[in-house]
Every structure is written in C-alpha cells, then in structure tokens.
Simulated scan of single mutants.
Amino acid sequence: MPSANPSPSESAIDSRTTASGAPRAGGAGRFAGRTVSRVGFGAMQLPRLADDRKAALGVLRRAVELGVDHIDTAQFYGNGFSNDLIREAIRPEDDVLVVSKVGATPDDGPVHLRLAQRPEELRASVEDNLASLGVEQVPVVNLRRADHGPGLRAEGDQDVDLDDQLAVMTALRDEGKIGAIGLSSTTIDVLRRSLPAGIVCVQNAYSIVSREDEDMVELCRAEGIAWVPYFPLGSAFPGLPKATEEPAVLAAAERLDASPAQIALAWLLHHTPNTLLIPGTADADHLAANVAAGAIRLDEATLATLDAIPSRTGDIEIR
C-alpha cells in the first residue's frame, strides 16, 4: 500500500531516478514539496479491468517499473476499485505520491457520478479514501469544484461557498488526515481566493487544443503550484476538439516517428516546467507509450508550429 510518510530527503534519492532506481518518466518535477516524475499515472481507467484484477495490478506495477511515482486516483473511480488496487499494488518502498480527490461520489445515473460538495460530504469522502487506500494520511487531496470545464454544475444544496469548503479541507489537513490541498475543475478567481490555504496543485481540462486556462497555468507557475491537466489529448465528449486529429500534431508525429498522442503529451511537458501529466490507461502497452512521450524532444520550429494551433474549447455541461 502507498506510504503516507514524508518523502525521503532529496539527498537520499537521486532526482534523476525514482526510489526503485528507475529513470524518472519525463524527468523530474516538483509536487507538494517533493520530487516526482513528470509523467504520472491516472487511475480512472482501471475499473475497466474489474473482471481481471491480476491485469489491473500488473498495470500499476508496470507503471512503477517504468519510473512513475505519482498516481492520481479517487474513491469514486469504480466505487473504491482503483483505490483498493493501489493499496495492494503499491508498496511503501516504492515511495509513490498518491493524490486523490473529493467533491463527487459514485452514482447509478447516466454519468455514474454526482456532486458531493457539502463540507460533511468532503469529510466523509476523505474518510472513505483513507479506508480504501489503507493509510492514515492521503498525501494530497484535490477539491473537485464544479466551476469550470466539461462536467457537472453545482445547484441547490450542492452550490457551496468556497470558504466553507476550504475550512473543512484545512481542518482535515490540520488533523493530519490529508497532507496538502489541491483544486480541480476550477477558475482562476477561485484559485486566487484559495492561495492563502496553501494550494499545491490544480487539475483542469487542458491540452494543446484547449488552452483557455493559459492565465491559470502561468499563475501556477509563478506560485510554484503543480499544473496537472486532465483530458491532455482533448476531450472524448462529442463536439470537443481532439489533439490527435490536429494536422500539425499528425505531421510532427510522422516526422519524429511517434504517435499523435505522444506528441500532444510531449508538448504539454515542453510548455511549462510545472506541468505534470497523469494520462490514464488500462493497457500496459499504452502505458509504456505514454511514459515514452516524456523522452520526446521537440525542436524550436516544431514547438512554434504546435504553439500556433488555435484553442477551441467550449464548456459542456453534463447532467
């Protein structure tokens, strides 16, 4: 199971390698005061392997072998399935930073998710994460808001004041149940209001074709906050742009003998040094391809061409 203890000192682990001695996937980045590989792993897809637990555990172990030491999860991923896998597959000596999130809960509706934004729901979700991960402290917990990007919108009793949410999150941190606080699906105004709480990361939908949050990326860079984009290849939602269909991405992929997805991930790593990736998959080969994207070098001419791709994001509300 993952360790909730503070990371070993920087002198104890060479920043070029993980605790297991593997080269850092994508190089070294900073997250919540420690060094991690810039290419991490998102556990959202693991419930697709609910009928093949051995394969699911194998994906997690392979991630560690490939130099991943930053895993993003949530109790609502498979109603605890992803967390349970992490508890079994990840060992304390792997020194993996496990990041979870609260603000939603599993549901039987069409999107299998409903908001859980009230302070008592946030606290209950942290307790659920502690139990399913088998730890006394979750190192980082993201507060999943409902302000921005594709996804659910808060209404009724789920439209909760930010200060009330930050109050319970900081209380949980003071109690030692969480180590640090992040934000997800949020706006730059909410981020600015939250800075006094000591925000360590922001997760928003962002990709080479969806860059409306550029000001937030720069604010995170200035404040030393990790920028951890989800939907890094654009969105699977109908009507939203896909990075892998962009002509400039396709041309770069052919020229560099890489896949379009790898080019899109490599661009994110080149764009700002505070960017960390959490591409998700339930396939070991796909995992290896995602990690390999961290080794792709984009020259100035290629970067200029990719930077010129227009951003074409529009919010989609799911109900």
Rank of each mutant, 00 (worst) to 15 (best):
I86K: 11
G103Q: 09
E88H: 13
L66H: 08
Q137I: 01
K54H: 11
G67D: 02
Q45V: 00
V98Q: 12
L85Y: 09
H112R: 15
Q45L: 13
G149V: 09
A146K: 01
I86T: 05
G78C: 12
R144Q: 07
H112F: 14
S125I: 01
D69A: 14
R48L: 13
L97S: 04
V111Y: 15
L122S: 03
E121S: 08
Y77S: 03
G42Q: 11
V140A: 02
Q75K: 00
V102H: 07
L133P: 00
P150E: 12
P139V: 01
P92T: 05
V98P: 10
V111W: 15
G78M: 12
G42M: 10
T105R: 12
D52M: 12
P106I: 04
R118E: 13
P106A: 03
G103D: 07
P139A: 04
F81H: 14
D72A: 12
D84C: 05
G67C: 12
E88S: 14
V141F: 01
Q45R: 14
I86D: 09
G151A: 08
L66W: 12
E93C: 03
D69N: 15
A63E: 10
P106T: 04
R53D: 14
D94P: 10
T105K: 06
R144A: 03
G103R: 07
A116C: 11
A104K: 07
A55D: 10
L57K: 05
R53Q: 15
F81M: 07
L152N: 04
R114P: 02
L60Y: 05
L46W: 06
P92G: 08
S132F: 02
G103C: 08
Q137H: 01
D108P: 05
L46D: 07
P92A: 09
G80I: 08
V126A: 02
G156H: 07
V135Q: 01
I90V: 15
M44T: 06
L152W: 11
A154K: 08
G156S: 08
L60K: 08
Q137L: 02
D95A: 12
L130R: 02
R53H: 14
I86E: 08
K54D: 14
L115E: 03
N79P: 00
E88G: 05
K101E: 10
G151K: 03
V102M: 08
D69R: 13
V140D: 00
G149K: 02
Q45T: 12
P139F: 01
I71P: 06
R87D: 09
F81I: 06
A131L: 04
Y77R: 02
D72W: 12
V135P: 01
F76E: 05
G80A: 11
V135D: 02
H70C: 13
G149E: 09
K101P: 11
V102I: 10
N142H: 14
V96D: 02
L57W: 03
R118Q: 15
P110L: 09
L46I: 06
D147K: 01
D72V: 07
A55R: 05
P47D: 03
A50E: 15
A55G: 07
V64R: 06
S125R: 01
D108F: 03
D72K: 12
H112L: 15
T105A: 13
R123C: 02
Q75C: 00
Q137A: 03
P139G: 00
E136S: 04
Q75I: 00
R114L: 05
L97E: 04
M44Q: 12
A56N: 08
E155R: 13
N142A: 03
F76K: 04
F81G: 06
V111S: 10
L97D: 11
V99M: 14
A154T: 07
G42T: 08
R87N: 13
